[in-house]
Amino acid sequence: NKLAADIKGALADISLLSKDAKGAIAFALNAQGSSTAPDLSLTVDSDRLSVAAREITGLKLTATGKGDIASPAADISLTGSVNDEPLDFKASLVTRQGKRSINGLSLSLGDNKVSGDLALDDRFLPLGTVALDLPDISPLAALALEEAKGDMRGTIAFSKTGNAPDVAIRATTDSIARGDLSAKTVTIDALIANYLAAPVISGKIRADSVTSGGTVISDIDVDLTRDGDWTGFSGGATVKDIPATAEGR
């Protein structure tokens, strides 16, 4: 069976997706060839978007590839600028000898960098490490139609224990904020085991302070341990100038 499809459309007001966003986007999807393995192409573009007082201009997403479940392939790129800072994202989905991978994953936006190479298992779950170097997350948040500010650096490492997927997060931030929630001098070194079916967290979380509205929690020092299918915790913090400790699961 042969497939031939050509779909075009537009969203004239993206504030329907996010109240902080203004502007319009257009998209086009084309599929040609065998119904079980068509050649696919997708484009999404916008001349100008405004998100949280940031201007996104010349935004263009392009994806081309083969829609073959047994041997998928795709090249993806995203270009444009956010407040005159250049945006460049690239990644390729590759299948070789029955093994799938995401090669050359690279995102740069101003001084912000994300990079990595990931293998994909039979369930398309990732294996590998992604490195984060984000001195200013606000333009990245604008791309996600969100408003946030701060910095983050670290790694996200995907692995497996048997058939259970795990993710290890090692990250630091001097400060980060979204809405009335903010945190300062945070260090996270945590493993989330079996994160899809029954997540259990172990590791350490440290923070000078976390503020939510008018509530300030300071000197946060928490250890997380795996206790069977449970997450155990112990540690302390200062809440409204009152030191407190807790332990449990």
Rank of each mutant, 00 (worst) to 15 (best):
N1K: 12
L3I: 14
A5R: 10
D6G: 07
D6H: 11
A10N: 08
D13M: 00
S15I: 09
S15D: 11
S15T: 11
S15L: 03
L17C: 02
L17W: 09
S18K: 06
S18A: 02
K19E: 13
A21H: 02
K22C: 00
K22F: 01
G23K: 01
G23Q: 00
G23Y: 00
A24N: 14
A26S: 10
A28L: 03
A28K: 04
A28V: 03
A28Y: 03
N30H: 12
Q32S: 03
S35N: 10
S35F: 06
P38Q: 07
L40G: 00
S41V: 04
D47N: 08
D47I: 04
D47K: 07
R48C: 03
L49Y: 03
V51E: 00
R54S: 01
T57V: 09
K60C: 02
K60I: 03
T62F: 09
A63M: 09
G65I: 06
G67A: 03
I69W: 08
A70H: 11
P72L: 00
I76F: 00
S77N: 06
L78D: 05
L78N: 05
T79G: 03
G80H: 06
V82N: 00
P86H: 01
P86F: 03
F89A: 04
A91C: 09
L93R: 05
V94I: 15
R100H: 05
N103M: 08
L105N: 02
L105H: 02
S108V: 15
G110E: 13
N112V: 01
S115N: 14
G116N: 04
D117H: 03
D117G: 01
D122S: 13
L125D: 11
L127T: 15
T129H: 11
V130F: 04
V130K: 05
L132T: 03
D133S: 07
L134K: 05
P135N: 05
S138K: 04
A142T: 10
A144K: 11
E146R: 10
E147Y: 07
M152G: 08
R153T: 15
G154A: 06
G154D: 14
T155P: 08
S159Y: 11
K160N: 14
T161P: 08
N163Q: 10
P165T: 02
D166W: 10
V167H: 04
V167M: 08
V167L: 03
I169T: 07
R170Q: 15
A171T: 14
I176K: 04
R178P: 07
R178W: 07
D180N: 15
L181G: 01
K184H: 09
T185N: 15
T185Y: 11
T187Q: 13
I188P: 11
D189R: 11
D189T: 11
A190S: 15
L191R: 13
A193P: 13
P199Q: 04
P199R: 02
P199N: 03
S202N: 13
G203Y: 01
A207L: 09
S209M: 06
T211L: 06
S212W: 12
S212L: 11
T215M: 15
T215W: 13
S218H: 07
S218T: 12
S218K: 10
I220R: 09
T225G: 07
T225W: 08
R226D: 08
D227T: 14
D227K: 14
G228E: 13
D229S: 08
D229W: 07
T231M: 05
T231Q: 07
G235Y: 06
G236I: 14
K240T: 13
D241W: 12
P243I: 04
A246S: 11
A246E: 11
E247V: 14
E247P: 10
R249D: 13
R249K: 15
